[in-house]
Amino acid sequence: MRGFVVSAAVVAGVVMLSGCGGGDGGDDAKSGGSSAVADTAACEKAVTEQVKKSMGGDKAARDAEELPASCAGLDEATKEKIAERAAGAAIADALGGDEKESSQEPDAKADVKITACSKDEFGYPVAKLEVVNSTDKTQDMNVQVSFNGADGTRLAEGGTIVTALEPGQKAKEDAMGLKEISGKFTCKVGSVDRWESQ
């Protein structure tokens, strides 16, 4: 069941973005006699919400063919990043709704270490993680990270899903924030949920 949730989110995000106006004469490029201004953050927010609604069974969201004007003109690399983040956010949201308890032994949070904290080329915060499975069973993990300003204010949050991590196995993962931030910031592991892989 979990595999279906993941694939549904990825497919929804990619399919939606494949229809983004990109200079191919789409309706967005023609409206009002001037091209729409691409807005990465606004596009990502709208796509993420639409993917979540689609996964939740909203037929209108699932069947929608039009994207907001803010997506028009974005290059393929940017659209791919937005698709990944939208899918990731939808997956995290869906898994959180499963109401599964995280493993109590050993401490799941202790199995996650931040190895780098920076921004990508689009201004989004990224925490590089090293995740290890210290249990004796194959595990899936949902890692959430907060990106905090110098005064401790949470500026953004993001996360990543690690699947089928074998006992003692390590994985290198990136947890990306879901909005652009400016100034200095720190990356901090928020919550780590872990459950036995099915």
Rank of each mutant, 00 (worst) to 15 (best):
74 L>S: 01
58 D>E: 10
130 E>D: 13
110 A>C: 02
135 T>M: 07
24 D>R: 15
80 E>F: 02
33 G>N: 14
4 F>W: 08
105 E>W: 07
148 N>R: 14
128 K>Y: 03
35 S>G: 11
6 V>F: 10
117 C>Y: 04
97 G>K: 15
101 E>P: 06
8 A>G: 15
172 K>C: 00
49 E>M: 08
192 V>C: 01
95 L>T: 04
17 L>C: 09
151 D>M: 12
135 T>Q: 09
190 G>A: 09
53 K>I: 02
74 L>M: 08
129 L>H: 06
177 G>R: 05
81 K>P: 00
186 T>W: 00
127 A>P: 06
164 A>F: 07
49 E>L: 13
122 F>T: 11
149 G>P: 09
25 G>T: 13
67 L>T: 06
79 K>H: 01
147 F>I: 06
102 S>F: 01
40 T>Y: 15
21 G>N: 09
143 V>R: 05
72 A>T: 08
71 C>N: 05
36 A>M: 11
143 V>I: 15
132 V>S: 14
116 A>C: 01
20 C>S: 15
60 A>M: 05
68 P>C: 06
48 T>D: 10
75 D>N: 14
10 V>W: 04
146 S>M: 07
12 A>Q: 12
132 V>Y: 04
91 I>M: 12
51 V>A: 08
93 D>C: 00
78 T>R: 03
91 I>D: 02
32 G>Y: 11
130 E>L: 09
28 D>M: 13
86 A>S: 13
119 K>N: 09
26 G>Q: 11
136 D>V: 11
47 V>D: 07
138 T>E: 15
20 C>Q: 02
117 C>V: 03
78 T>G: 02
46 A>R: 12
34 S>K: 15
113 K>Q: 12
81 K>W: 05
72 A>M: 02
164 A>E: 13
182 S>Y: 00
67 L>M: 03
98 D>M: 13
83 A>H: 03
5 V>D: 07
133 N>E: 09
23 G>L: 12
139 Q>A: 04
106 P>G: 10
106 P>A: 06
